[in-house]
């Protein structure tokens, strides 16, 4: 097992955002965490990547306890987060953004390989190498955020709502990319509000409701689960 979360609790002051979460991610999987707005999805990824403190519980990665490790150290464990809202560095060029993604690495030749890999996945970024990230379109910024996260050569990639705010054709493209990144050997933990799409690419899924896991299991089975259908796939299942 690659990632094991046990009884994770997070407090923001008096707000009890995560109330004892247990989760697992195995090597090679795409696992998705779905849930409505405010359920605690981003908080979960924040706790894994060291941005928010766990008040209780344990996060283990490849057998090592990484609970409350500062964010800048979590990256060197080969976990990397593409955050909600992209958070690219607007005044820095596409290339500088990607270079920052490789901040923890030092081998020049290997870093160049990663640049090539990202440019292969996202040819549009290559055309805009020198352009400030703030001038990219929303879709391009999302590609940059994912590409930047890949530059650290993560074993586990955490994606927080990569399809948010994108046009439908771009959403499809992003999900295709998620699958191909996974096929190339990167394990993925995906957060989505677009539950239908997320369940269709994922192997397994967890459903989060106000800080607690309410359902979990095989993604395809959950897709047909009446509780999931009514709560999260409501407006999509008419196909």
């Amino acid at each position: 097992m690659m990632l094991k979360i046990t009884d994770l609790n997070v407090h923001y002051g008096f707000i009890h955002a995560l109330k004892g979460i247990d989760m697992e991610v195995n090597e090679g999987e795409i696992v998705t965490l779905i849930g409505s707005n405010g359920a605690g999805k981003s908080t979960t990824l924040g706790a894994i990547s060291g941005l928010v403190k766990a008040s209780k519980g344990k996060i283990e990665f490849e057998g090592e306890n990484i609970t409350n490790l500062p964010a800048y150290k979590v990256v060197s464990k080969k976990i990397s987060l593409s955050p909600e809202g992209r958070e690219v560095f607007p005044a820095l060029s596409v290339e500088e953004n990607l270079r920052l993604g490789a901040f923890t690495r030092s081998d020049k030749a290997e870093i160049n390989q990663s640049f090539e890999r990202v440019y292969d996945l996202f040819p549009r970024l290559k055309e805009r190498i020198k352009q400030p990230a703030g001038t990219l379109s929303g879709g391009e910024q999302q590609m940059l955020a994912i590409g930047r996260a890949l530059m650290s050569r993560p074993k586990l990639l955490l994606l927080d709502e990569p399809s948010m705010g994108l046009a439908p054709n771009l959403v499809l493209m992003i999900f295709d990319l998620i699958e191909s990144i996974n096929k190339q050997g990167t394990t993925i933990l995906l957060i989505e509000q677009n539950a239908n799409m997320a369940l269709s690419v994922a192997h397994r899924a967890y459903v989060l409701e106000t800080g607690k896991i309410s359902l979990s299991g095989d993604a395809k089975e959950l897709m047909n689960d009446p509780r999931v259908k009514s709560a999260y796939l409501g407006e999509i299942h008419e196909t």
Partner: peptide, 15 residues
């Protein structure tokens, strides 16, 4: 320069 623009995102890069 990264810290200047977004310290949180910079820390996610390993800074």
């Amino acid at each position: 320069r990264a810290t200047e623009q977004n310290a949180r995102a910079a820390s996610l890069m390993g800074v």
